[in-house]
Simulated scan of single mutants.
Amino acid sequence: MKLKLGILDQSPVSHSDSSAASALINSVNLALFAEETGFHSLMYSEHHGVMAYGSSSPELLATIVLSKTKRIKVGTAGIMMRNYSAYKIAEWTKLLGTLYPTRFILGLGKAPGGLKDAVMALNNHKPVILSNLETKLEEIIQYIREEKGIYNGLIAQPVDLKDLPEILWLGSGMTSANEAAHHGIGYSFAAFMNSENGKSVTETYLKEFDETQYASKPSLQVAVAVSVAENSEQAKRNAYGMAYQFLQSRQLVSPEPVLPTEMIEQRILGTEDEEEFFTILDRIITGTSQSVYEKLQMTSEKYQTDDILLLCNMYREEDRMNTYKNIIENNK
């Protein structure tokens, strides 16, 4: 079965370069490649105050890429809602939905997008209220749908969208799945973060989806981390840098630019972090071109969706591109 393959691009910065500018150029080049070779979508992540990733504004990067492409769907994965007002998110979403109808995807997340200092700075150094995120989602939907009764009929420009933009709720657990289903929006499940009970989470979303809300049918996307090389061992070693960034994020440490495998081995082997690191590494789908594609097909069957989002951060940009090239060639 042919898959709807997308790319989750975090604009990774490599330790060999340590340049956000290079990472952003790589992102634009990757977008043009994805458009040309038949990828279904491109999604851009949001991170603040870290050296590991080049972009802090997925909505701006998505806008640039939309202007340079004609076919591919482009979106945010996601906008970290606690940092912005519902009104402003709705405004620029409707702007992009007007200029690029049916192509822009609003991906929304509840994670902070950075460590404490960055989140405080984004919120004018005021404590962040976490309990109102679902309420904020409801407000965004009301503004986009131009429903009456919110703030005395306040509108979010531009009005009268021909097509409502697709909305994706990002998550990795049962709470986010239920929220997406309740509001009738799409759900992007981060399997690279939590694959243990993923099937029950996504089944809940599909079962509980409310067709009377924002969209008439469920839209399930599954995000996985991948690494392709000439042999399985090399593919796994190429993924060390990505796995180490995941480890740092889990430990609430600011992720570093993608490090070379040898440096990570020096840091990890024989330490208390070794077991956790290799557990994270095993969650990444690695192997040869054919074996990885077969695993993606199995992922599709497991989660009952053909919409698979691929994350690949590599120390060498050519290894990252090689992974995407090999996977899309197998999908034709």
Rank of each mutant, 00 (worst) to 15 (best):
F209V: 02
L66W: 02
E134N: 14
D319A: 04
S22F: 03
I328A: 15
L311P: 07
A23V: 00
L24N: 09
Q251T: 02
Q142I: 08
A243C: 13
K2E: 10
E233S: 08
Y214Q: 05
N26T: 11
K199I: 14
H125R: 12
A229L: 02
T175M: 08
I144L: 15
K199C: 05
T261D: 14
I155H: 14
M51K: 10
E91S: 05
Y87V: 01
P58K: 09
T69W: 11
I155F: 04
L247Y: 12
S195G: 11
K4S: 14
I79N: 01
F277N: 01
V228C: 05
S176P: 12
L42F: 11
G54M: 10
S200V: 12
A215E: 11
S56A: 13
N238S: 03
F209A: 00
L133R: 00
H183K: 04
N331H: 10
A243N: 14
G54L: 10
E203C: 04
L259I: 04
K295D: 13
V28S: 03
N326F: 02
R283E: 13
D17P: 03
L3W: 02
L61F: 11
V226W: 01
V65L: 00
T323F: 02
R283C: 12
M321C: 03
H182I: 01
I285E: 11
R267L: 11
K162M: 09
N313F: 08
H40M: 09
E272D: 07
Q234V: 05
S67T: 03
N178G: 12
L8H: 04
G97P: 01
Y44N: 06
V74F: 14
V50Y: 07
N132P: 04
T175Y: 14
I268F: 05
L108Y: 06
K136P: 03
K126D: 06
Q10E: 08
A215K: 09
V292I: 04
I284C: 00
T202R: 00
G149L: 10
E134D: 15
N178W: 03
M51C: 08
P127A: 12
I268M: 05
I155P: 00
I327G: 07
I264L: 12
E138S: 03
R71M: 05
I25M: 11
A177K: 02
L161I: 02
P101T: 11
D160L: 00
Q213Y: 01
L309N: 14
T212D: 15
F39I: 12
A86H: 01
L137A: 02
L281S: 01
T212A: 13
A118Y: 15
T279W: 07
E35I: 06
W169Q: 03
A21Q: 15
M174Y: 10
R320D: 08
W169M: 12
G6S: 09
S16W: 04
M81I: 04
T37G: 06
S176M: 08
E166A: 14
A31T: 13
Q142P: 01
S41D: 04
P158Q: 15
N322F: 10
F277Q: 05
G153I: 15
D17H: 08
W92I: 07
H40Y: 11
I328K: 09
I155D: 13
G6I: 12
E256N: 06
P165Q: 12
V74H: 04
S19W: 12
L220K: 00
V201A: 05
L311H: 07
A215N: 15
D306G: 11
L206P: 14
K295I: 10
T93L: 07
Q297I: 15
